[in-house]
Design a protein around this nucleic acid. Structure first.
Length: 484
RNA sequence: GGCCCCGUGGUGUAACGGUUAGCACGCCAGGUUUUCAACCUGGAAGCGCGGGUUCGACUCCCGCCGGGGCUACCA
């Protein structure tokens, strides 16, 4: 028994392709396949070709094509050639088809699906259908498949996989009207486009012998294949549009960064070999080799993506990060202009906290809108010494000199606010939470916010004092009501 | 049913004949502490099962079980 040694494609001048079928949005699994191809190409002097497998006229739509291209661009997976449309290559397909018909490698067969079923019932389940050329030249076009021998896929990732020819049908390569089918079109296109390595999902492994058979019939040297394991949903089932299969646009809308997605998705089935987890795209390009991709299916785990995304957000240059957040904020504010100083300051003070871009706005919206009404938070915090604490806080804050510094140009900076407020708990003989939480609820309406000094500095003198006064007032009213 | 692929903690992975089975996310506990998050420390948690081969198997072989893919005049 020989051991199969993977041949490195390290420095070869390869041509790879990503060939999605536009029957839906690009989801995380497709994105990973695209990424692997892209990485393989960028790793060397390779060429990344994009081809749209749109021969299924029933389900392919221009909208889906646009969405897929949009997703790839957003992920920054740029292609060097294409996008080619498979249906746009009808002439080439027809020529190849005619060649096979002429050579006798393919033939017209008038058998219907029912005929084939009946034939199989008679010949056994492990026996592929073998037809006979129709006398009148009608019917679908089938490829002749030999009964003997195996078709061997020398897979980059899995090694040799043998498929007995007799288990394959003389499969249909073109409909009666001459329109070609997937397994034929793919082979012709990969041949014409000079594809050297086909990196694609595991679901195609069983199709590969068919495509190899087409190459053989055409007398063309086939590319090398590498089948990456499928991604499964949390339920262990194949990832699809139905369940858990986050589309790329959904991930974008959820506030994930392209770089984080690339990093995370690359690690689904592939590892750099050491214990590194955070890998920049440059590092991925440098270290990725398709032959190192694993063989078992993986499950998409959004928790880890979130963590990783948070890491990327914290490492982003502040300006870049702020601009990335802006898109999400605009979606929330419907174009209402925001105070720029406050906005960028707000972004800055939550950069360490948020794990997705989407999480930023909820944390800073109090800077642009009245406090939210969170009665539960109010009841929990605004009791006991809260009123006394707020009175002291207000007094301390009023004393702060207005030197013009700070995000609002009113003397409120993180440092100045801190110097004014931090000593209060001790002075009042209260725990820090007894002082700071009431401030938080007073200015934001809830118990979740950025750091309290940061929040007050961001809100600024006028608005902070107004909100504290408003809260104090409500507390006084409550006391009067109680004493009645 | 047939053909094929896969099987290390909840998840992603490392080790590939000899390690206390490593790392990361998550989880739990503690720390920091003004909330949440982040951050720090610690912890629980794994080689699907059964046979072989071997002085020795997560690692090699076989069977079983489990999961998945394909089996269209879909891609």
């Amino acid at each position: 028994m020989e051991t199969w040694a993977p041949m490195s494609i390290e420095n070869s001048n390869l041509r790879v392709r990503f060939a999605p079928s536009p029957t839906g949005a690009l989801h995380i699994g497709g994105a990973r396949t695209a990424l692997y191809n892209w990485l393989a190409a960028r790793h060397g002097e390779g060429t990344f070709v994009l081809r749209i497998e749109d021969t299924d006229l029933e389900r392919s739509t221009p909208e889906n094509v646009a969405q897929i291209l949009d997703a790839l661009r957003w992920l920054e997976l740029d292609w060097d050639e294409g996008p080619y449309s498979q249906v746009g290559r009808a002439e080439e397909h027809a020529a190849a088809l005619q060649k096979l018909l002429d050579s006798g490698a393919a033939y017209r067969d008038s058998a219907t699906a029912d005929d084939v079923k009946a034939w199989k019932a008679e010949h056994g389940a492990d026996r592929g259908y073998r037809g006979t050329p129709s006398a009148d030249g009608s019917g679908a076009i089938r490829l002749r498949v030999p009964d003997e021998g195996d078709t061997v896929v020398d897979d980059l990732i899995r090694g040799e996989v043998r498929f007995p020819n007799r288990s394959y049908d003389d499969f249909v390569i073109a409909r009666g009207d001459g329109s070609v089918l997937y397994n034929f079109a793919v082979a012709v296109d990969d041949a014409d486009m000079g594809i050297t390595e086909v990196i694609r999902g595991d679901d195609h492994l069983s199709n590969t012998p068919k495509q190899l058979l087409v190459f053989e019939a055409l007398g063309i040297e086939p590319p090398r294949y590498g089948h990456v394991p499928l991604l499964h949903g949390p339920d262990g089932k194949k990832l699809s549009k139905r369940h858990g299969a986050a589309s790329v646009q959904e991930l974008r809308d959820a506030g994930y960064l392209p770089a984080a997605i690339r990093n995370y998705v690359a690690l689904l089935g592939w590892g750099p070999g050491d214990d590194e987890t955070l890998l920049s795209t440059d590092e991925l390009v440098a270290r990725f080799r398709p032959e190192d991709v694993g063989t078992s299916s993986a499950v998409f785990d959004e928790k880890k993506l979130r963590w990783m995304n948070g890491r990327y957000m914290r490492e982003m240059p502040i300006d870049e990060y702020t601009e990335a957040v802006r898109v999400f904020v605009e979606a929330e504010t419907a174009g209402r202009p925001l105070n720029e100083e406050r906005f960028s300051f707000g972004c800055e003070i939550v950069q360490e906290k948020a794990q997705t871009l989407q999480e930023v706005w909820p944390l800073i919206r109090f800077l642009f809108e009245p406090p939210v009404q969170d009665e539960k938070a109010w009841r929990k915090v605004m009791k006991g010494d809260a009123a006394r604490a707020l009175t002291e806080v207000e007094a301390a804050l009023i004393e702060l000199p207005d030197g013009g510094e700070g995000p609002n140009g009113d003397g409120f900076t993180i440092d100045s606010v801190q110097s004014a407020v931090e000593p209060l708990p001790e002075k009042l003989g209260l725990g820090p939470g007894k002082v700071f939480q009431p401030i938080r609820v007073a200015i934001t309406g809830t118990t979740i916010s950025p750091g309290i000094f940061e929040s007050v500095a961001a809100l600024g003198r006028e608005e902070t004092l107004a909100r504290i006064e408003s809260a104090s007032s409500r507390l006084r009213d409550a006391v009067e009501t109680d004493s009645e």
